[in-house]
Simulated scan of single mutants.
Amino acid sequence: MIVEHYFEDYAVGSERRSFGRTITETDFVVHAGHTGDFFPHHMDAEWCATQDFGQRIAHGTMVFAIGIGLTATTINPHAMSYGYDRLRFLKPVHIGDTLTTITRIAEKRDHPKRAGHGIVVEAVEMVNQRAEAVLVCEHLYLVTRRPAG
């Protein structure tokens, strides 16, 4: 879906919530193949059973990628991702956990060098099926200002 929002159209405090996505063993295997990260924490169920955490832990980069992907429901031709700040992994994610991503417009500010653009900061929180936050970050958007006239 295409939604046209200029910088001025974003409202601080507005929220959206994604649908849920259950993490599978296939997710672990595919992500390990893409990244080359085959550490036993992610791939060796028997070894993990001997550790304090007891079971395989999802790759943090996978949790981030899936959680951000859940928010990709619209295309705004006036905005583009400018990056991510303050990324933190708060709790482990395991096979069978269901993730939902909640976003809230936290801030709007001028771009220091581009008068025709602003920066919109979206607070991102990924939660599991128990409503426990597993990952948080800030998503920065570079957004065109509404043309004068």
Rank of each mutant, 00 (worst) to 15 (best):
R17Y: 11
Y6W: 10
P147V: 01
R146Q: 11
A131S: 14
I119A: 01
Q51S: 12
R21F: 06
T98P: 13
A72K: 13
G20D: 13
P40F: 15
R109N: 04
I102F: 08
E132Q: 14
R145E: 03
G67Y: 01
H5C: 10
I105H: 04
H5V: 00
A32V: 06
H31A: 03
H111P: 07
C48L: 08
R145G: 01
A11N: 14
T24M: 04
R16G: 06
E46N: 14
G60E: 03
A115D: 11
H59L: 09
I57E: 01
I57K: 00
P92K: 00
I2S: 12
T61P: 10
S18F: 06
I102N: 12
F39S: 14
E46Y: 03
F7C: 00
S18N: 07
L135F: 03
P147E: 02
G116W: 00
A72F: 12
T103V: 14
D97V: 05
Y84H: 11
M62H: 06
D97K: 00
M1G: 15
L99R: 08
E125Q: 13
G36M: 04
A148L: 12
H41I: 15
Q51I: 08
V3I: 15
R16Y: 07
G69S: 01
H5Y: 11
A49R: 15
A72Q: 15
A106Q: 05
H117Y: 15
R109K: 13
T103M: 09
A49M: 11
H111E: 12
P112F: 06
E8K: 09
C137P: 09
P77C: 10
G118T: 03
L140S: 09
G69L: 03
G149H: 02
V12W: 06
T22F: 08
T35D: 11
I75F: 13
R130E: 14
A11Q: 15
G83E: 09
E132D: 15
T73P: 00
A32N: 08
H41F: 14
R21I: 03
T26S: 09
I2F: 10
A49P: 08
V120E: 03
